[in-house]
Write a protein that binds this DNA or RNA. Structure first.
Lengths: 140, 140
DNA sequence: TTGCTCCTCACGTCACGTGAGGTGGC
DNA sequence: TTGCTCCTCACGTCACGTGAGGTGGC
């Protein structure tokens, strides 16, 4: 969950300890990351993951698992899946599993989230006032 | 944009001054509230508005306009359209254009928004750290 | 045979956006 | 005739949820 220590404009997960296994089923990854099978298949459909196949069955490698971690990290930062796909595509060859964020892109996303934050703050202020009013009224 | 001064668990817009006109076209309401025609038709499709018709053309009355204001107010508080529909249906007969919010519902919505706020706050913290790192790196 | 995990459609949800193709009145 | 506003489909977008119907191996 930490930003990678490498220099340069990249975000990445540090290698988790439990990745000693070489291959993962869709069920294993879903459980580990708290996702549904549908979500994992959807990420594949959107071109964000491309596990190998053994017949019809998906086989995820350690690199797929790392990439998934990066995807979820970026989602937590508020990027859409298509933005994530683009950011991953821009990443330098040596860091195919990371995201490439420029200072400008980072600033854009900050502005975007600050906007949402302001809307939620305004709603919360009103709702708290309203709740106080309701409680005061019912107590009377 | 203020909570109605009436006693009781209701939220409503105060009557705006420009409602001297008795009827409105969809275009007039869209412009006034900063919505698209599609949005207004969509609210109708979801059963939140039911303007009259003159042939095929929608005719909105002052009461429709007030109801729209309530809908947008509730949306700003983070309620979904189906929640808004339910809240409007629960409102007492005499306040058909208002929303009926209980203290419990208000508390639920506050909790919901606080959850979102926490996620956005966490994302913002990371993005600001990352931006600072990017700027420091590029300055070196 | 049951139970578990995996698979591929494919429609549903949320709140609209975006044409396509057409009408009515100044 | 042009321009404006209105209309009804109906598919697209976003990130999946949710069955339906079927397979493979212990």
């Amino acid at each position: 969950m930490t930003i990678s220590p490498q220099a340069g404009p990249t975000l990445a997960y540090s290698q988790p300890t439990s990745s000693s296994r070489r291959y993962f089923t869709i069920g294993q990854l879903a459980k580990e990351f708290g996702l549904t099978l549908r979500a994992l298949r959807f990420y594949e459909d959107r071109g964000l993951l491309s596990p190998q196949r053994e017949g019809h069955i998906r086989i995820y490698r350690a690199s797929d698992r790392e990439r998934l971690a990066v995807i979820l990290k970026a989602k937590a930062l508020g990027f859409t899946l298509s933005e994530i796909k683009a950011l991953a595509a821009e990443a330098p060859q040596a860091e195919r599993l990371a995201l490439s964020l420029s200072a400008a892109q980072t600033a854009d996303q900050i502005a975007h989230l600050e906007q949402q934050q302001a809307e939620i703050d305004a709603a919360l202020r009103e709702l708290r006032t309203e709740r106080a009013r309701l409680l005061a009224t019912s107590a009377t």
